[in-house]
Amino acid sequence: MQLAERNRLRVRFRPGGLAPILVIFVVLLVLLGTRQPDFLSPPSLMSFLGRSAPLILLAAGQYFVIVAGEFDLSVGSLVTAQVVVAARLIDSDPSRTWPVILLLLAFGAAVGLVNGLITTRLRVSSFITTLGMYLILVGAVYLWSDGAPKGGLSEEFRRFGRRAFEDVFLVGRIPYALLILLAVAALAVLLTRSDFGRTLVAAGGNPRTAELSGVRVRHAKTLAFVLSGLAAAVAAILIGGYSGVSFQAGAGLEFGAITAVVLGGVALGGGRGSVVGAMLGALTLETLFTLMNFYGVSGALRSTVQGAIILLAVAVSAMRSVPAKGIQ
């Protein structure tokens, strides 16, 4: 009887459901609103959403990798590399904007492809593969630019990250970044509902079952890394526009993205969670950082907070699925 009771409870609070992250998000918003009522005014909210877009994009990309049971630690340095590469190639020449944007997308996809192939074909744990990629990209970018970023971004490139439609009815302004985010988010949601998205989750949940049901597990996982690389490329375009060129452009973003995904109820190890949860997790994390800012908490505590969130979220989900013997 007791067991049935416990099962019922566990079903109601399904791990991977959206309820917990929504609650946390609303609580943080209320706290922010009471501390700083201005924050909730439409223009300020719109700017906040635009600022948060890169992390939300990275969280969406990271979602595909984590739900498939892998990690992508390379996105932070990939963003840095993309920004530095873009600045040098564009070299402030507006006519090069679009070719370089296409090149960045291809570069992101290629890095994802390499991550995916090394992980699935050479059977290197993705933690190590992407850590290696992270280090390789950091070093390669330094080498390529002789230690200091060269060139500059064109205004055409930067507008995606920092311009907005102004004087919009009701909301005041809509950043381009927000529109790009919405478009990508819509694509991501469609993808998770497609056969690819569903079989990817199954591959993360139980690769052996998936393989024996005809899923090409290695293909699917590789594609997940490619999606993460593409997300990093889009994020890099927004970050380059918003904060300009530096070797710090993408620093720490990989952990931000992983924290966001975990906070959004996606299980590390794969198999459950939604991309909407992951993106909400990123938004919640940004809200938390803003709140910390308003309360005058040192920015240095960010990584401590992220670490605590990861540990807490993983511990909570582990407690929930204690008898999950069949789950890896």
């Binding site: 989750v201 899923v215 198999g271």
Partner: peptide, 15 residues
């Protein structure tokens, strides 16, 4: 290797 334990009944049947 027969089921995906954490996935729904429907997802398992559709796999």
């Amino acid at each position: 290797e027969g089921i995906v334990a954490g996935a729904s009944v429907l997802d398992n049947a559709l796999l």
